[in-house]
Structure formats: structure tokens, C-alpha cells
């Protein structure tokens, strides 16, 4: 069981860096794209609304594997046109294709989450900002966005974990992430325990991520916790005056 780990740990480590790279870059790109798109999606203009709706529905309604094949293999059908455009180097590389697909997929999911978050901001807060004469940008920066992200944070964390797990699909188009190396080692040694080690790696990454994300959530909602060090404050007075007893009987 441990021989596999001793023999192949550099490969698994290499795969881990590839998995993290894929997940991190695509999630960050999606994070940057999804916010403006979510705001556009909420605009009343149908010309903005419908393309974004279609985009979200398509990427959430089709398997990630099919999307990856469509972009990586499908681009081969337009090789000449893409070469003329000067972007063939991008679609030829499995890494860029995987990044592109994952980023678009994650954008669709994050967009929906942020849309829900934007919708859930209490209207009174926005009205109060408007009443103070805040401009749109200031309103977004200081009131709407902090609240949106506070609401959306748990769901965004789930989405990032889904992306991390989804990135295992990249091994199908010959990218050597954890899954890719694991499959290769298994085909060389026929030792089932390599899958066990891969499982440990994935579980470890997810657990660490969940822990880190919880810290971030705590940081963003710090106004909702009582300060721990409040001994120097005077003890609160009793808020409710003692109730008078009633004598009915």
C-alpha cells in the first residue's frame, strides 16, 4: 500500500499542483467575469438579459465533459479559420482549453449565485444610500457589494469545491492533474491503492479549503459577533423592569 506512495509521490505532488492551478485560475477568472454579468443580468434591458440567460442555462444544463470536448476537440473542425484568426495556439493546448471551459462553466454558476445575492440585499439599505445622495458606484462599493458577497459566500465556497472536483475531468483530455497521474500509475502498476492516495489528496484539499473559507466568512461577518474582549465595558443594566405581579384570582 505504501510502496506506491513511496515510488510515485513526486508524480502525485505534480498532479496536485496542476489541479490547484487549474481550479484556482479558472475560479478567479470566473469570479471577475461573473459580477458584471450578474449586474447586467438584473438590468431591465432584454438585450442584455436574454444572452446571459441562454449562456447560464447552457452551461448549467450540459455536462462539463461535453463542454470540454466541444471546445477542445470541436475547435479542430475550424482549424484553418482559427489559424487565420491567429488563435489556434490557444485551442491546440489542452491546458488553455480546460481553463477556458472551466472558467466559462464556473462563471455560469457563480453568476446565478451572485444574482441571488444581489436580489437578497434589503431594499431599505439601498434606499438609505440613495437618500444620502450616494452615486451608483459608491452605492455598489460600500453597500450593495459587501452585503451581496456576505450572502453569497457559502454558496460560492460550494461552487469552488465543485470546480475542484470537476477539474478531475481535465485528465480525460490528457492533462496530468491528480486524476491523470493516478490513472497512469494505475495502468502501470495495477495497484488499486493509488486511487486511495488520490482520494486522500482530494479530501485533504477540500478539507483545508473548507476551513480557510470558514475563516473568510467569519472575517466578512465580523460585525455579527460580540467582541470577545469586553471586560472593560460596564455590565449592561437590566433591560426589562421587573414585572408587576397580577392579582386576578
Amino acid at each position: 500500500m505504501f510502496e506506491v506512495l513511496i515510488d510515485y509521490w513526486p508524480k502525485l505532488l505534480d498532479g496536485m499542483s496542476m489541479t490547484l492551478k487549474l481550479t484556482f485560475i479558472s475560479v478567479v477568472i470566473a469570479g471577475l467575469l461573473s459580477l458584471p454579468l450578474a449586474i447586467l443580468r438584473r438590468s431591465k434591458n432584454k438585450a442584455f438579459q436574454w444572452p446571459i440567460r441562454l449562456f447560464v442555462s447552457f452551461f448549467r444544463g450540459t455536462p462539463l465533459l461535453a463542454q470540454l470536448f466541444l471546445i477542445y476537440y470541436g475547435s479542430g473542425q475550424f482549424r484553418e479559420e482559427l489559424t487565420d484568426l491567429g488563435v489556434w495556439w490557444f485551442f491546440r493546448d489542452p491546458f488553455y482549453c480546460a481553463l477556458f471551459t472551466f472558467a466559462l462553466n464556473s462563471t455560469a454558476y457563480q453568476l446565478e449565485i451572485l444574482r441571488g445575492g444581489l436580489q437578497a440585499v434589503p431594499y431599505g439599505e439601498i434606499e438609505a444610500g440613495v437618500a444620502l445622495g450616494m452615486k451608483r458606484t459608491l452605492l455598489y462599493r460600500t453597500i450593495i457589494l459587501p452585503h451581496t458577497y456576505r450572502i453569497a459566500l457559502p454558496a460560492l465556497g460550494n461552487e469552488i469545491i465543485l470546480m475542484l472536483k470537476g477539474s478531475a475531468i481535465a485528465s480525460v483530455i490528457t492533462l496530468m492533474d491528480v486524476m491523470g497521474h493516478t490513472r497512469r500509475v494505475f495502468s502501470q502498476t495495477f495497484d488499486i491503492s493509488v486511487y486511495f492516495w488520490a482520494a486522500i489528496i482530494y479530501l485533504m484539499i477540500t478539507t483545508l479549503f473548507v476551513f480557510a473559507w470558514r475563516l473568510l466568512e467569519k472575517r466578512l461577518t465580523r460585525h455579527m459577533y460580540y467582541p470577545v474582549n469586553n471586560k472593560h465595558l460596564p455590565a449592561p443594566k437590566a433591560l426589562n423592569p421587573p414585572k408587576e405581579t397580577c392579582h386576578v384570582n
Partner: peptide
């Protein structure tokens, strides 16, 4: 539940396909 939710579906599939077979 923790295992299933932490593992990629592809990995689960391979573990079952190769592992249960063996």
C-alpha cells in the same frame, strides 16, 4: 457523506470500476 462529497465523481467511478472488479 463527507467522502462522497469530497471526491470527484470521476475518481469514485474509477475506484468502483477497478476496485470492486479486483
Amino acid at each position: 457523506t463527507t467522502m462522497i462529497r469530497g471526491l470527484p465523481e470521476l475518481l469514485t467511478l474509477f475506484i468502483i470500476y477497478h476496485g470492486v472488479g479486483l
